[in-house]
């Protein structure tokens, strides 16, 4: 139900090869006596693995946050049993903060070598939005836009900090709420 896809990579461009500063990560590996691992090929492979760890579905994130608003809860309950009913819930400007802790475990010859914990802080600023709700689920967005600020850290050091331009929310976003089928 996503058209178009709304994920972190498309939002702030974390899939580009130069989006991360992998230096602190590789320096950390080198400091552990793993000099043989400290190579550009490892950096590229690690970058790709980290890209997989950062694949966030922004639609699911929005639904997880919006479901906590009382007016949205009420609309979901109202339309759950009446399939002909629909509701439009306007939300004032708000922001959604999410903190993620992805990790990449480095394996050498099939054995776990080191666990690399990352921290991703994401701030979504939504100026205004009107939610269309049907059959106990958020079915569409009538209007709205957002900006995103993503910060990726490793061992207290910032690897990436990127802000997105304002993005008009598409008419439909895959919003998974508790009432969704």
């Amino acid at each position: 139900m996503t058209d178009p896809a709304l994920d972190l990579a498309s939002l702030v461009g974390v899939d580009s090869r130069s989006s991360f500063d992998m230096g602190p990560v590789l320096d950390g590996l080198g400091g552990l006596g793993a000099g043989v691992l400290k190579s550009s090929r490892l950096g590229d492979a690690l970058h790709n693995a980290l890209g997989d760890a950062l694949k966030l579905d922004i639609g699911a994130l929005l639904g997880q946050a919006w479901i906590t608003v009382d007016s949205v809860k009420t609309a979901l309950e109202t339309t759950r049993d009446d399939h002909a009913a629909s509701a439009a819930v306007p939300l004032m400007p708000h922001q959604i903060k999410s903190s993620h802790t992805p990790s990449v475990k480095l394996m050498v010859h099939g054995l776990p070598h080191v666990d690399l914990p990352f921290t991703l802080d994401l701030v979504l600023k939504i100026d205004s939005v009107v939610l269309g709700i049907e059959k106990g689920a958020v079915s569409h967005l009538k209007s709205g836009g957002l900006t995103a600020l993503a910060t990726l850290k490793f061992a207290g050091k910032t690897l990436m900090e990127r802000a997105s331009p304002r993005l008009e929310l598409p008419g439909r976003v895959a919003v998974r709420t508790a009432g969704a089928a």
Partner: peptide, 23 residues
């Protein structure tokens, strides 16, 4: 050359929503 592999874990997420204006 070492055989390198990765196990990627998305980890946990903590989500909060706050309105800019007092509603």
């Amino acid at each position: 050359p070492p055989a390198i592999g990765f196990i990627v874990s998305p980890g946990r997420a903590k989500v909060t929503l706050t309105f800019d204006t007092d509603v």
